[in-house]
Computed example of a mutant assay.
Amino acid sequence: MATKLTLRIDEDLIAHAKSYGRAQGKSVSRLVADYFAGLPEQEAPREATRDTPATPLVDSLRGVLKGTRLGREDYLRHLERKHR
């Protein structure tokens, strides 16, 4: 069953989509429907656990702050300097 969908899109993008659609022999509605049909199924979000392997970047950062005495005040000072 086809249902109407309203989208707010920049005029230039609409013009480009119409031009592309004409060249492909498809309406903009068909282009959008084809795009939506090609989207992967939504996966359930994974919960992080201790058993979840870390990414190489996270592994490379392990222990870099070990032995430091950084706390909440240090973080707030950092944010104040960053957002001046």
Rank of each mutant, 00 (worst) to 15 (best):
M1Y: 06
A2Y: 13
K4A: 15
L5V: 15
L7C: 05
L7I: 11
L7A: 10
R8C: 07
I9E: 03
D10S: 05
D10Q: 06
E11N: 10
E11T: 14
D12I: 03
L13W: 05
L13H: 13
I14Y: 10
I14D: 02
K18Q: 14
K18C: 01
K18M: 10
S19P: 00
Y20C: 00
G21S: 07
R22L: 09
R22N: 14
A23T: 06
Q24G: 00
Q24C: 04
Q24Y: 06
G25A: 02
G25I: 03
K26P: 00
K26T: 00
S27I: 05
S27K: 06
S27Y: 03
S29A: 13
R30C: 02
R30K: 06
L31E: 00
L31P: 01
V32I: 15
V32E: 03
A33T: 09
A33V: 07
D34T: 01
D34W: 10
D34A: 03
Y35I: 05
Y35V: 05
G38I: 08
G38W: 04
L39Y: 01
L39P: 01
P40T: 02
P40E: 09
E41S: 12
E41F: 08
A44F: 09
P45C: 01
P45T: 02
R46H: 03
R46W: 05
E47A: 15
A48R: 15
A48G: 07
R50C: 04
D51P: 02
T52D: 05
T52Y: 01
T52M: 06
P53W: 05
A54P: 09
A54V: 07
T55A: 06
L57D: 06
V58H: 07
D59E: 15
S60M: 04
S60C: 04
S60K: 07
L61R: 12
L61A: 09
G63D: 10
V64S: 08
L65H: 10
L65P: 00
L65M: 13
K66F: 05
R69T: 07
L70M: 04
L70W: 12
L70E: 01
G71A: 13
R72P: 00
R72T: 11
R72K: 14
E73R: 07
D74C: 07
L76V: 13
R77N: 15
R77V: 11
H78A: 14
L79M: 10
E80C: 03
E80G: 07
R81E: 14
R81V: 08
R81D: 11
H83R: 08
R84V: 01
R84W: 08
